[in-house]
C-alpha cells in the first residue's frame, strides 16, 4: 500500500525552538490516524506542513506522493479542516459551497448540499452566526465535498461541547465508511481518538514517540506487575515504556513482540488510553530526570 503521508527527518524551527524535530513517518492509506499529544507538541505544525501552509526547515514531506500544495491537483486531493474551523463570517453557507465548487477541480456539489441539508442548516445563513459545532460541520463539508483522498483535521472538536463533539465524530466516521477516505485527525482528547482511530501517532515535545496500528500496538504492549524488581534485569526484547514502584511492588508497561514467559509477572492487557498516557508521561520523565534514573532502583 502506498503512503498517504511520508516524512523523512522532518523538522520545523521557529526562531531557536523546534516545533517538530527529526520526524520520520510513513502512514499507509486507508487508515483513520489519530495524531495525539499534549498542547504544543507539534500536532498543528505537522498538519500545516502536510497541507503546505508551512514549509519544512529540515527533511522532507510527501503527501499522496507529492510535495504539499505543489499543484492545484495536489491541493484538490487533500481536504483540510484547520484548527478552530475558520470560515468567512460575512459569507453564507451557500457562498462557502460556491467557493468550494469554484476552487476545487473534483468538487461534488451533491455531497455538499446533501450534507448541509442533513445537518438542518439554512444555506442562506451567514457563517458568522453559526455555532462552533455548526461551523465545524461546515468546514468538514467543505473538506469532504472536494472528494479528497486524504482528510486532515486539526483539533476539529477541541472547542465543541460533548454532544457536538460526538455528532461531529459520527459524521466523520460516516464519511470514512462512505467515501473510503484516509484521515489524519489531531487531538489531545484521548477518548475521542479511541472511538475513531485505527492508527496512532503519539507526538510529544516535537518528537514522534510511537506510531503504528492501534491493534498491533495494543497487542505488543503489556502491563506487568509483581515483586519489586530493577527493570534493567528484563529481557532485552522488552522495552520499558513506563514504570512505577512501591516498596514491595513494581508495575511496568513494556513493549515486546515476544510472549512474556516470566511467571513472576502478572500480565494484563492495556487500554488505548493507557498506551497513549504511557508514551506521553515517558516523555515527561525523560525530560525531567534523564534516562539513567533507572539505576536508582535497587
Amino acid at each position: 500500500m502506498t503512503a498517504v503521508l511520508e516524512t523523512m527527518g522532518l523538522g520545523k524551527q521557529y526562531g531557536r525552538r523546534w516545533a517538530l524535530h527529526d520526524c520520520t513517518l510513513s502512514i499507509p492509506a486507508g487508515n483513520v490516524v489519530g495524531l495525539v499529544g499534549p498542547n504544543g507538541a507539534g500536532k498543528t505544525t505537522m498538519l500545516q506542513l502536510a497541507v503546505g501552509l508551512l514549509a519544512p526547515t529540515t527533511g522532507s514531506i510527501a503527501v499522496l506522493g507529492d510535495a504539499p500544495a505543489s499543484s492545484p491537483a495536489q491541493l484538490g486531493k487533500v481536504g483540510f479542516v484547520a484548527q478552530d474551523t475558520p470560515a468567512y463570517a460575512r459569507l453564507s453557507i451557500a457562498q462557502h459551497l460556491h467557493m468550494g465548487s469554484w476552487l476545487n477541480p473534483d468538487w461534488d456539489d451533491e455531497v455538499a448540499t446533501q450534507r448541509i441539508d442533513q445537518l438542518g442548516l439554512d444555506p442562506k445563513q451567514r457563517a458568522g452566526s453559526l455555532s462552533g459545532g455548526q461551523r465545524a460541520q461546515l468546514a468538514l463539508t467543505l473538506a469532504i465535498a472536494k472528494r479528497p483522498e486524504l482528510l486532515l483535521l486539526d483539533e476539529p472538536v477541541a472547542s465543541l461541547d460533548p454532544l457536538a463533539r460526538r455528532e461531529f465524530l459520527q459524521s466523520l466516521m460516516e464519511v470514512v465508511a462512505e467515501h473510503g477516505v484516509s484521515v489524519v485527525l489531531s487531538s489531545h482528547l484521548v477518548s475521542d481518538l479511541e472511538r475513531v482511530c485505527d492508527y496512532l501517532v503519539v507526538l510529544v515535545d516535537s518528537h514522534v514517540r510511537v506510531a503504528g496500528e492501534v491493534s498491533e500496538l495494543l497487542a505488543s504492549h503489556h502491563r506487568l506487575s509483581g515483586l519489586r524488581r530493577n527493570p534493567s534485569t528484563l529481557p532485552a526484547n522488552q522495552e520499558v515504556i513506563e514504570q512505577s514502584h512501591t516498596d514491595k511492588q513494581s508495575t511496568l508497561l513494556v513493549r515486546t513482540e515476544e510472549p512474556i514467559l516470566d511467571p513472576n509477572w502478572t500480565v494484563t492487557p492495556i487500554t488505548f488510553e493507557d498506551l497513549v498516557l504511557a508514551y506521553m508521561s515517558q516523555a515527561r520523565d525523560t525530560k525531567h530526570l534523564g534516562r539513567p534514573a533507572l539505576g536508582v532502583v535497587s
Binding site: 484547520a82 484548527q83 478552530d84 472536494k146
Partner: peptide
Amino acid sequence: ETGTYRLAWTQGVTRTR
C-alpha cells in the same frame, strides 16, 4: 487575522494563483 487563509490556501488553487 481571522485565520481564513488556512481555508483559502488549502483549496485546489495554488497560493501564487
